[in-house]
Design a protein around this nucleic acid. Structure first.
Length: 222
DNA sequence: GGATGATCATCC
DNA sequence: GGATGATCATCC
């Protein structure tokens, strides 16, 4: 693995140097084996890019580059530059949520500064032929942060009031809550309708595609 | 089980 | 065709 980047500028420069390479070329260079598809290795591309950029956090619930305060996200796009998937942010706590605030949340922490690495990854393109595109170092605008905060506060309120089972992916303007588990039999503690502890499917926060499409568009087409 | 990395597969 | 709900690999 490469040494950790020492500055934001160095990280961005390194990310820019990946643009134009295919995942197959990078995998070969770094000694990664290449899966035929991502059905069984959904995180493969993200882990390859982490390796290429010297990310260090592993599976700890912190930013990928804690010293730089930067989170790394690969994002699959089509040839028009539109995201093909929503973007996973982090799991959500479902109990012991009193006292949590937006600024103390993992969502805020992870999204405060993100290095986006778009990858041309339409499903018909073989994995090794998918191409890394121009990176974008992003922080939410005041307006974007307001939307994120409103959604987060609404969803955390519902969780705190025992309404987790009423939440669907349709809630939220830009941020949504969806299952995040090995399968739909997974269970974790949550607050029930009468304040008791219940068992429910673990959920995670995701950025809706419309939101990431707009942020990419703003930076690449204006 | 819970955290990381996400995409898959089905439904509308 | 796009979004929702379901799922996969790995680490500890």
């Amino acid at each position: 693995m490469l040494a950790k980047p020492k500055s934001e500028a160095e990280l961005l420069q390194r990310a820019q140097s990946l643009a134009g390479f295919s995942l197959g070329e990078l995998a070969q260079r770094e000694g990664f084996s290449i899966p035929k598809n991502l059905k069984r290795e959904k995180g493969w591309g993200g882990q390859l890019i982490e390796w290429c950029l010297g990310a260090s956090a592993g599976s700890k619930p912190i930013q990928d580059f804690p010293e730089l305060g930067i989170e790394l996200k690969t994002i699959p796009i089509d040839s028009q530059g539109k995201p093909l998937e929503s973007t996973y942010v982090c799991i959500t706590p479902l109990c012991q949520v009193t006292g949590l605030t937006w600024h103390s949340s993992n969502v805020y922490n992870k999204l405060s500064r993100v290095l986006w690495i778009p990858i041309l990854a339409e499903r018909q393109i073989p994995v090794e032929q998918r191409v890394v595109a121009t990176p974008l170092l992003w922080s939410p605008s005041a307006a974007q942060e307001q939307l994120l905060r409103e959604d987060w506060e609404e969803l955390m309120d519902m969780i705190a009031f025992g309404q987790i089972e009423q939440i669907t992916a349709r809630h939220g303007q830009v941020l949504q809550l969806r299952p995040k588990a090995a399968n739909n039999k997974a269970r974790t503690d949550a607050i029930g309708p009468n304040g008791q502890i219940i068992q429910t499917l673990p959920r995670g926060y995701y950025l809706k595609t419309r939101f990431t499409a707009e942020l990419l568009r703003q930076h690449f087409q204006l």
